[in-house]
Amino acid sequence: MKNLTRTSSSTVQTIVSTAIIAAMYVAVTMVIQPIAYGPIQVRLSEMFNYLVLFKRRYIWGVTLGVFLSNFMSPTWTLDVPIGTVSTLLVLFLVLWLAKFTSSLKLQFVIVGVVFALSMFTVAGELYFAFKTPFWFSYLTVGVGEALSMAIGGILIYFVDRKIDIGRFRI
């Protein structure tokens, strides 16, 4: 009976943490909605990508947040499936790459750089939806993502120093 209770508690914790992270991602995206979409975008909610460095299971909350937020995108028919799958794949990639270093600062750099480089998917969506020049969109969206990840990385890093996100139970 104890094992069943532990398993149920763990499942509930995972569901709750997934919902909280997804809700935070959506809330931040909605607050900055005018600059969260389009060929020039700074989506500060991308800072939640760093959470997977602290607990692998946070990948589902971040992915769900992206999925829900992308319904508000002007290119939502492309952004929901492509953006969501891209985020999930890139999160798995950065988790794999982060295993090669124990330095949290270097792991943050890896996450930020890889996410900025992954913006070719958004540039492709903008090209197909609005015929915006692919390389220009890749540059502007990539720079916006790099900026989002830099600001978000600093915020998450200092929040972790204060509350130890890896041990934070949500």
Rank of each mutant, 00 (worst) to 15 (best):
S69P: 04
F115S: 13
L117A: 15
S73T: 15
P39W: 12
G38P: 02
L95Q: 02
S10P: 06
I20L: 06
S9V: 04
L106S: 01
T7H: 08
T29I: 09
P74G: 07
G124C: 11
I59H: 03
V12G: 00
G83T: 08
Q33Y: 12
Q13H: 14
L126M: 09
A129Y: 15
S137I: 09
V62N: 05
W135S: 11
V80D: 11
T75F: 04
S17A: 13
M119K: 10
T77G: 00
F168P: 10
L104A: 05
G152M: 13
A146M: 14
F108M: 08
W76Q: 14
I21W: 06
K105Q: 11
D160G: 01
A27F: 04
F158C: 05
T87R: 00
R43Y: 14
A123R: 12
F67W: 01
E125V: 09
L126F: 03
G166R: 15
S148H: 02
F130W: 10
S45V: 09
F168L: 15
G38C: 10
Y138A: 11
L104C: 05
V26L: 12
A19P: 09
L104P: 11
L139A: 09
A19D: 07
L78M: 15
L139G: 02
K55L: 02
M1H: 13
Y50W: 08
I35S: 02
V94E: 01
G142T: 01
L97Q: 10
P74H: 07
V28E: 03
S8P: 01
T77Y: 14
V113W: 02
D164A: 15
I20F: 03
Q33G: 05
V80E: 10
M1Y: 14
T140M: 13
G153R: 03
L44R: 00
N70W: 13
T101C: 06
V122D: 00
N3I: 10
K162A: 07
R57E: 15
R167V: 09
A116D: 11
L97F: 10
L89I: 07
G61D: 11
T121I: 05
T14P: 00
A116T: 10
T7D: 00
